[in-house]
Amino acid sequence: MSIQIKQVSKSFGSFQALHSIDLTIKDGEFVAILGPSGCGKTTLLRILAGFEQPSSGEVLMDDLVVAGSGTLLPPEKRRIGMVFQSFALWPHMNVSEHIRFPIRTHKSTPSHIKNNEKNRIQEVLNMSGLSHLADRMPHELSGGQKQRVAIARAIAPQPSLLLMDEPLSSLDAMLRMDMRREIQQVHRNTGSAVVYVTHDQGEALAMADRIIVMKDGRIEQAGTPQEIYLRPETEFVARFVSKSNLVTGHWDDDVFMPKDGNNISWPGKQVGKYFKSHGLYPVRPDQFQLQPSGKAGILGEIVNVQFQGKEFHYDIRSDATRWEVISPLPFSLNDQVSLSLSSVSGEGV
């Protein structure tokens, strides 16, 4: 299913949740909508699902207008599946019954699935690794198993579009990693388009074909995970996705001179126009090269150290500025150090 969102805005009373959103999602594409709480990502997902009607603009699915002025096609007629943050399992149904329910009740379920219900249930159980749990009730399942059931239920009627609203946020860190792989496998197996709402940068970067970064109801930047992470176009994207330090200084064409550096310059051909026009250089924590004081660079003092196994996370104070730095090199609290741009980090970000 291909999706076109054209000039969609949404207001709740005097509050403008979405501002003129334009977005196209290709058939089979995995799109992550990334942003902080209140940025409008869930509102956009609810409009795609048919739970909300846009205040202006329209949504087309396979060239059919499903939401717009005077038009709102209900969710059950959109061939969509949805996975919620809360799992939303029914306590009186076992795993197989959860999978059977949408096959029987969704009006858009293809006839070849309805006519082979038993085979489809078994196929989905196998695909989601739930065959041995088919007769279990929700209270007998772990958090990860419940999330698999929620995903299995969503894909059972073979939707053309799978909508996921922060589905992993209630799981612990190790389980989230496992479930990322599960969701990727489901996407490969089904071929459905996926719209995945999250505030977790790691999830979006790991799974999506394309990331839509939102802020205050607007699209801040859209691109591949590599483009978003390595080449942010705005200060918000640099800080929110890449966790970048914004170094102030002066640009001379594609060469940057940090204000607090002692006669140093950094190459920056690929740094975005926004940063050049504002005298900034975004440096991810892992891009900084940490050296003992006396070396050329930005001088500072280590004010906090966190050991993370293969690397150290440092907070470094330089006059009134604090930098976040990730380095494999061991330094101690209160050490005087020098910061430069790592030669292996490439030009810009």
Rank of each mutant, 00 (worst) to 15 (best):
A150V: 08
A150H: 01
I151N: 01
I151F: 05
I151Y: 00
A152V: 12
A152N: 09
R153L: 11
R153Q: 12
R153F: 04
R153K: 14
R153A: 08
R153P: 08
A154E: 02
A154H: 06
I155H: 04
I155V: 15
I155M: 05
I155K: 04
A156H: 04
A156L: 09
P157M: 09
P157N: 07
P157D: 01
P157L: 10
P157A: 05
P157Q: 03
P157G: 05
Q158R: 14
Q158L: 05
P159L: 06
P159I: 00
P159R: 06
P159Y: 04
P159S: 02
S160T: 04
S160M: 07
S160P: 00
S160C: 05
S160I: 00
S160H: 06
L161E: 02
L161K: 08
L161W: 07
L161Y: 09
L162D: 02
L162K: 02
L162Y: 01
L163D: 03
L163V: 00
L163A: 10
L163Y: 05
M164G: 01
M164R: 00
M164A: 02
D165L: 10
D165C: 10
D165V: 10
E166C: 09
E166S: 12
P167D: 04
P167W: 03
P167C: 07
L168S: 04
L168F: 05
L168K: 06
S169L: 10
S169P: 07
S169T: 12
S169W: 02
S169M: 12
S170E: 10
L171Q: 11
L171F: 02
L171P: 06
L171C: 07
L171T: 00
L171A: 12
D172G: 13
D172L: 13
D172E: 13
A173Y: 11
A173L: 15
A173K: 15
A173C: 12
A173R: 14
M174Q: 15
M174V: 12
M174P: 01
L175P: 05
L175M: 15
L175N: 06
L175R: 04
L175S: 08
R176F: 04
R176G: 09
R176T: 01
R176H: 08
R176L: 10
M177S: 13
M177D: 10
M177K: 13
D178I: 11
D178K: 15
D178F: 08
M179E: 05
M179C: 10
M179R: 03
M179G: 03
R180K: 14
R181V: 14
R181I: 12
R181A: 15
E182D: 10
E182K: 02
E182L: 13
E182P: 04
E182V: 14
I183S: 07
I183E: 07
Q184Y: 01
Q184G: 15
Q185G: 03
Q185E: 13
